[in-house]
């Protein structure tokens, strides 16, 4: 253990075959699988608008974005598998409700503007988090983050562009984007998790350089980045307490309603049940397909062995 922690202090990367405390391994499995599950579940609220995208260009870019997310989930699942757990078990944990995923994806996408706002806020928040995680101590996770960050920047810019077009559009479009912003702002701030003093895992994750910065630091960074972006497209943020603090050079913001957050992660958010039901039915309906492919391959390999 001492040698392990010394390696971390030297800034070394831990690779799959290296010795690691069981707790480190378990924390990483939890964190990485949650991240992967979030990417997969996140396909649902955005996928909800693919068939109704209002222009071919938007349809194409939204499809590409959601596909990227599937790919991100896949990279992170593969990274998680290096820790000694199979993807079948990970999928099972998600579908039985044993594993968590990011609270934000339990909110519904009610209008097209939600798609823009998700790119801007949710991908924006994810980038802040993932940029930090690119320096995480576990090699496969860090490498997945670097690959993901490249693609995620493109998503955020697209989302912001959708919002800026709406904000400069018809009255109905301006109302649409303001309404979406009003609904997604606070849940996006909650994505960073409660203040670290409330968060049971944080201290250990920081000691082992899995997390490199606190939830509050990341949340503040996100707010500081986003407020000027909102001003630039003339969209307001639903927080009367938002005020620039010249001393700290940060934007002060209002209190978060953590009750809502805890309700959502407990399973009582607007869409929790639908999200899991959708994933379960895809999985269940898909069983015969997965079995067919496996059976086909077995027959082929038996034939060539004969």
């Amino acid at each position: 253990m001492a040698e392990f922690e010394a390696r971390l202090d030297r800034g070394e990367t831990i690779e799959p075959k290296d010795w690691m405390p069981e707790k480190y391994r378990k924390q990483l499995i939890r964190m990485m699988s949650q991240h992967a599950h979030s990417e997969i579940v996140g396909m649902l609220p955005e996928g909800n608008w693919i068939t109704r995208a209002p222009s071919l260009r938007r349809k194409i870019t939204l499809l590409a974005k959601v596909q990227d997310e599937a790919g991100h989930g896949l990279y992170i699942y593969c990274g998680t598998e290096t820790l000694g757990i199979g993807r079948e078990e990970l999928v099972d944990q998600l579908l039985t409700g044993k594993a968590k995923y990011s609270s934000i994806f339990n909110y519904p996408t009610l209008t097209w503007a939600d798609i823009g706002v998700i790119g801007w806020f949710v991908d924006g928040a994810a980038i802040v988090n993932q940029t930090m995680l690119a320096k995480t101590s576990y090699g496969p996770y860090a490498r997945a983050m670097i690959r993901i960050c490249k693609e995620e920047n493109f998503h955020k810019r697209q989302g912001y562009e959708i919002c800026s077009v709406l904000a400069a559009g018809t009255q109905a479009q301006r109302d649409m984007v303001q309404d979406a912003v009003n609904r997604w702002w606070w849940p996006s701030l909650m994505m960073f998790g409660p203040s670290d003093k409330e968060s049971p895992n944080s201290a250990e994750l920081i000691r082992w350089r899995v997390k490199r910065e606190s939830n509050d630091t990341l949340r503040q960074r996100f707010v500081d980045l986003t407020v000027p972006q909102a001003k630039a497209i003339n969209v307001s943020l639903p927080d009367p307490d938002l005020k620039y603090n010249a001393e700290t050079e940060h934007w002060d913001f209002g209190a978060i309603d953590w009750d809502e957050f805890y309700q959502v992660i407990k399973g009582n958010g607007p869409c929790n049940r639908e999200r899991l039901a959708a994933r379960r039915s895809a999985h269940d309906d898909g069983a015969l397909v997965r079995d067919a492919a496996a059976a086909y391959a077995r027959k082929r390999s038996a034939a060539s062995a004969a």
């Binding site: 000694g84 199979g86 079948e88 078990e89 069983a287 997965r290 079995d291 492919a293």
Partner: peptide
């Protein structure tokens, strides 16, 4: 390590890894 009956002994619903 997780309990495992051996590759192929139960259906790996997520297919083998490459």
């Amino acid at each position: 390590m997780t309990p495992n009956e051996g590759a192929g002994a139960r259906s790996d619903t997520q297919w083998p890894l490459w």
